[in-house]
């Protein structure tokens, strides 16, 4: 197996190259971008990020925790004040609201870690500090006989360089 990294200057070129590579049947594709560009990220991973599911789970856990904690605690040691009910929903809504945000936020960041593959203890050898400057990279894993085809395809899409890296 071989790995090729094509270096591009503009996000549109990266997106076009990725789409063509996919249409030719290459599936092991990854890109490196210095900044977020939806066209690039969507070309590689067309589905929406699953982070949204994490936010939903966190938010729902928070709202349930907020109400159940306050209501349970108010009834665990009941203090009668003026014959009013022990649990009072309007003030507890504030606690439930804050916990919705808190749990939702924490699980969102957890989602970033899970679906973004962080923390990563070994950095991909194809990564290079020029991708944290202003260059884009497209990394493709392929069999050795496909190297020439991919090389030509990337250059057709305005890759400034195409290099081989350790696989």
């Amino acid at each position: 197996m071989a790995r090729l990294v094509g270096i591009f200057e503009l996000p549109a070129q990266v997106a076009a190259a990725v789409k063509q590579l996919k249409s030719r049947g290459y599936t092991d594709i990854e890109t490196f971008s210095p900044a977020p560009f939806p066209e690039v990220d969507d070309a590689v991973h067309p589905k929406p990020s699953k982070v949204r599911l994490m936010t939903l789970i966190g938010g729902l856990t928070g709202v349930v925790t907020g109400y159940s904690m306050t209501i349970w605690m108010a009834n665990n040691w009941q203090i009668m004040i003026g014959g009013k009910p022990f649990s009072s929903i309007p003030p507890y809504t504030i606690i439930a609201f804050e916990l919705t945000i808190l749990f939702g936020g924490i699980l969102t960041v957890l989602g970033l870690f899970i679906f973004g593959g962080l923390p990563k203890f070994k950095i991909d050898p194809a990564y290079n500090s020029r991708f944290s400057a202003e260059d884009f990279g497209v990394v493709v894993r392929c069999s050795e006989q496909d190297v020439a085809e991919i090389d030509a395809l990337m250059r057709d899409n305005d890759a400034t360089e195409v290099n081989l890296v350790e696989s």
Binding site: E30, T31, F32, S33, P34, P36, F37, P38, V40, D41, A43, V44, H45, P48, S49, V51, R52, T55, G59, I101, G104, G105, T108, V109, G111, L112, F113, F115, G116, G117, L118, P119, K120, F121, K122, I123, D124, Y127, F131, S132
Partner: peptide, 24 residues
């Protein structure tokens, strides 16, 4: 945390920033 700016990382990052903004 081993960030390399890959598309899966940016995708998760963008979504997280959007949701954190929505929550904040």
């Amino acid at each position: 945390l081993g960030w390399v700016g890959s598309s899966s990382q940016w995708k998760a990052h963008n979504r997280s920033v959007l949701h954190l903004s929505g929550l904040a």
